[in-house]
């Protein structure tokens, strides 16, 4: 399936909730969708197009805004699809994909703690890789690698 076929298949189901479909790497295509219609898009991609297997969820901090992306696999098409949406950096939140793909559970926990994107109605949004009570989000661009280390060295030498 090419990105044009993908756009044709999605248009009648989702209408203007899809902002665009473009070719992406070696996948069926990248679907950019409106963040407030996330659950509808997940449902349509899973049930209508048959992408039953969610591979990963991740986030990118673009400083001006943040991007959430989902990669899903279809056994019938033998292809991946990439779903992505932009959300504002001020209050970054999006509906959780766990009702559609239970596999999203841990991936969303990880994205929440590392990229600071809140997943609404997630069943169990706790720290996964970082210690409980950790307030930093290391994969944000504002988190610089060297500063915390230098501070610690200074403390010890005093």
């Amino acid at each position: 399936m090419q990105s044009e076929d993908l756009a044709k298949a999605l248009a009648p189901v989702l209408g203007d909730r899809v902002l665009g479909v473009e070719p992406f790497a070696k996948t069926a295509g990248r679907v950019r969708f409106r963040a407030d219609a996330a659950l509808d898009v997940f449902h349509a991609v899973k049930e209508t197009l048959g992408f039953h297997h969610l591979s990963m969820v991740g986030g990118i901090d673009w400083v001006t805004h943040r991007e959430v992306f989902y990669v899903a696999w279809s056994d019938a098409l033998r292809q991946y699809i990439l779903l992505s949406t932009d959300i504002p950096a001020e209050a970054p939140h999006i509906e959780s994909a766990t009702p559609v793909w239970p596999a999203a559970n841990w991936h969303e926990r990880e994205t929440w703690e590392l990229v600071d994107i809140t997943f609404d109605h997630h069943p169990d949004l706790r720290h996964l890789l970082l210690p409980d009570g950790y307030t930093f989000h290391p994969l944000l661009r504002s988190f610089k690698l060297h500063e915390p280390e230098e501070l610690e060295v200074k403390k010890r030498s005093v």
Partner: peptide
């Protein structure tokens, strides 16, 4: 079925 739902590969 459970493998696919939970992302097991």
């Amino acid at each position: 079925n459970d493998c696919v739902a939970t992302g097991v590969t």
